[in-house]
Each structure stands twice: as C-alpha cells, then as structure tokens.
Nucleic acid binder design. Structure first.
Lengths: 157, 157
DNA sequence: TTAAACATGTAGCCTAAGCTAAATATTGAG
DNA sequence: CTCAATATTTAGCTTAGGCTACATGTTTAA
C-alpha cells in the first residue's frame, strides 16, 4: 500500500505522505450519487418517455423524500430541470453525464461477463466499480473485450 | 441498466423496481472507510512498528480531527483499541478486516497491472474498486491472473 | 525543570444521504 | 365539482465524514 511515485508498490514500499488515492476516492463519492441519478433518469425517459420522482424512489429503493432532496441538489448542480409535480428533464450537462455513465456501465458489465462473472453479480459489481475507474483502466477493459471477441471469432455471424 | 433477475441486461431490459444494486452500493460505503483505516493502520504497524493518529491523518490527507472521530467510530465498532496519546492497536476483528482488505488490494492491483494499466493509475483504481467486488469477481480476477502467469510461462524461473 | 513543539481532543459548523411524519398540491372518479 | 388517492414538499431527526479554531496533554531540548 502507499502510492508513492515509482516504486514497486506490491512489495511494501515505504509509506509516504498524503496518498492521492485517498483524496481521489473521497472526491469520487460525491459525483457517484449524481451519476446514478442521471443515469436512471435517462433510462426511465428512454423506457417510458418520462421520469418522475416517485419512479426514481422506487427504482433506487429509497424514500421519495430522499429523492426530492437529491433532485434539488441535481438542480443546484445544473444537471436537471423540473417543475413541481411535473416530469424531470436532464440538462445538456445531465445528458452528457448520463451518456458517459451508461457507456462506462456497459463496458464494465461486458467486461465482467467476459471474465465469467455471473450475470446478477456482474450487474452489482459493475454498479459498484463503474464510478471508480480511470480512463486508462476503462481502455484496458475495452481492449480486453475486443481481443476476447476476436478470439471467440465472430460468435454469431 | 436495471438489474432484474434474468434478462439480457445489456440491451435495455425493462426497468424493474428497487434494484438491489443501489442498496448494496450504499451499504458498502459505510464499510469502506473502516477498511481503509484498518488497512493503513496495519501497514503502518508493519512498516514502523506502530500507528499513531497523526500518521493516519498525514497518509490519508485529512485533518487529525477527522481521524480522531474516525478512530472513535472504529473503537465503537470493535476494530481498534487505543489510549489517548498512545499507539493504535487493531483488535482481532480489525486484523481480520485488514488482512482481507490487503488481500483484495493485492489481487485487484495485480489484475490491473496484468491488464496493462500503468502503475500509478492501477493503484488509484484498485483503491476505488476493491471495496465493491463480490467474491465471484475476485475469483474471476484471480483466475485471470493465474492464466496470464501461465501464458507468460514462468516469467523469471 | 520549564517552555516550545508536537500530538490529541473538543466544540461547533458544513454537506450528503438516509429516515418518518405531516402539510400541501394534483389528478381522477364518481 | 368535489373527495379520495396519489405525488411532492417541508420540517426535523440521524449518521458519516469533512473542516477550523481552540483547549489540553506529552515530549523534548535548552
């Protein structure tokens, strides 16, 4: 453990100060909830043509009150617009974030499935992981997926 | 998105209710901080023979006050014992958790490195991911690691 | 041995994410 | 058109994790 610049991290390099990992992990946490919201909102819109607060609460398994406060925060952060008792809309920024989240989700999920992780577990883990992956790791996952597809040689064509 | 039991999740299955993923992700968050603490405490003990609150603060990049409160919670949860102004010790339970966290960390890190993710990024992402992986996914990572090692044919013996 | 430096702790504040209970607004059936 | 069902918001509480400022305990060096 202990990030420190160039050492062999896996064999107990000296612990240095203020590891960036920790800060990163913390900062991510804030963005995570927002990403979950916009992703689900977009999904609901795609599926049913609109997203309502109650639907969000149901799907996320939290109370409608929690959603109400969450939405207020999304509005404050410019990800969402809505009028009381009306449908929820994503802003440009919100749609971008949703698209991003979605793409990551798909890549991570496919990757786990390709590795042989069972469907349900893969879904859960993808949800847990997808907010914590750097572009580099996402790229590595994609690359693996491609080579795995190539290896199994045009599965169905 | 949308977990729902057996469907093809990757091609927009109908969104069902109260996806378990969300609940899981939330519950994980609480345990995550604790795991980070005990892992770092164990590392400091291994490295320097003891762990002090200030060291934790420095390494985690938070204030000593935050650590103070964090430690109080760890004590409350039976992971740690310490006397004011003295070294911090892990309980049996704390050591178990630390060992677990450590093993997971190593596997995830090795896995990412094997996939070609650069060292520093792999460290960061491992930190982000390691608390969110099911036993099944951990097993899949291990399996991949083994076959990767086998493939590169006894790299150095 | 005592004052400075260092380590810890406490008070009090913030945000986020959760909750229940209660108020209010909208919709839809009679 | 009105009343019940449904949807949303507000108030107020909890826990967790941050913070600064300040208080207090411990070490150490002159």
């Amino acid at each position: 453990m202990g990030v420190q610049f160039e050492c062999e991290l896996t064999e107990g390099g000296a612990l240095l100060t203020s590891d960036e990992r920790f800060k990163k992990a913390r900062a991510d946490n804030a963005a995570e909830a927002a990403a979950d919201y916009v992703e689900l909102i977009q999904d609901l819109i795609d599926e049913f043509g609109e997203a309502r607060a109650t639907d969000l609460a149901t799907h996320m398994g939290v109370s409608h009150v929690t959603v109400s406060k969450g939405l207020q925060r999304l509005v404050k952060n410019g990800l969402v617009t809505y009028r009381p008792y009306r449908s929820i809309f994503l802003t440009e920024k919100g749609r971008d974030l949703a698209r991003d989240a979605r793409e990551r989700h798909v890549v991570v999920l496919q990757f786990l499935l390709a590795l042989g992780v069972p469907n349900l577990v893969a879904e859960q883990d993808a949800e847990g992981m997808e907010h914590h992956l750097s572009p580099e790791t996402m790229a590595a996952f994609s690359k693996y997926l491609e080579s795995a597809r190539a290896a199994s040689d045009v599965p169905k064509n």
